[in-house]
Simulated scan of single mutants.
Amino acid sequence: MKQTDEQYRDLLLEIQQVDFVIIELNLYLNTHPHDHAAIAQYNEYVQRSMQLKKNFEAIYGPLTSFGYSYSPIPWKWKDAPWPWQV
């Protein structure tokens, strides 16, 4: 497996942290569907997550597979380490 640099790990950690907030807000909104502030915060974090993932993929290649991420040429999904291996 290739070594990863500090930026790789930092960016991946930030993606995980932002996605955790999204999951928690999603659970909260399931029981509080009219909380406008929570919905705004959820949308803000979704936008941040999308941008972080776009930045990550531009530098390191696909973060996910099965139609969620574009792949450059050549096919990059086979290149380890995969995010869950770090």
Rank of each mutant, 00 (worst) to 15 (best):
K2L: 12
K2Q: 14
T4A: 12
D5N: 14
E6S: 14
E6Q: 15
E6L: 08
Q7S: 06
Q7A: 14
Q7N: 12
Y8C: 03
R9G: 03
D10C: 07
D10P: 00
L11H: 06
E14N: 05
E14Y: 01
E14D: 07
E14C: 01
I15N: 01
I15H: 00
Q17Y: 09
Q17V: 07
V18P: 03
F20T: 15
V21Y: 11
I22T: 04
I23H: 11
E24M: 08
E24T: 08
L25D: 03
L25K: 08
N26Y: 10
L27E: 14
L27S: 15
Y28G: 06
L29R: 04
N30R: 13
N30M: 13
N30W: 09
T31L: 12
H32T: 09
H32E: 09
P33W: 04
D35G: 08
D35W: 04
D35Q: 06
A38Y: 08
A38P: 02
A40D: 09
A40R: 10
A40W: 10
Q41F: 08
Q41E: 13
Y42R: 13
N43K: 10
E44D: 09
E44S: 12
Y45F: 15
Y45E: 13
V46L: 13
V46F: 13
Q47T: 11
R48T: 11
S49C: 04
M50L: 14
K53Q: 04
K54V: 04
K54C: 07
K54Y: 12
F56G: 01
A58Q: 13
S65R: 09
S65D: 10
F66E: 12
Y68R: 15
S69D: 08
Y70T: 11
S71Y: 02
I73C: 07
I73A: 07
P74F: 08
P74T: 03
W75I: 06
D79E: 09
D79S: 09
D79I: 11
A80W: 10
P81W: 00
P81I: 01
P81V: 00
P81R: 02
W82N: 08
W82M: 12
W82H: 14
W82I: 07
P83L: 03
W84I: 03
Q85W: 01
Q85E: 15
V86I: 09
V86Y: 01
V86F: 00
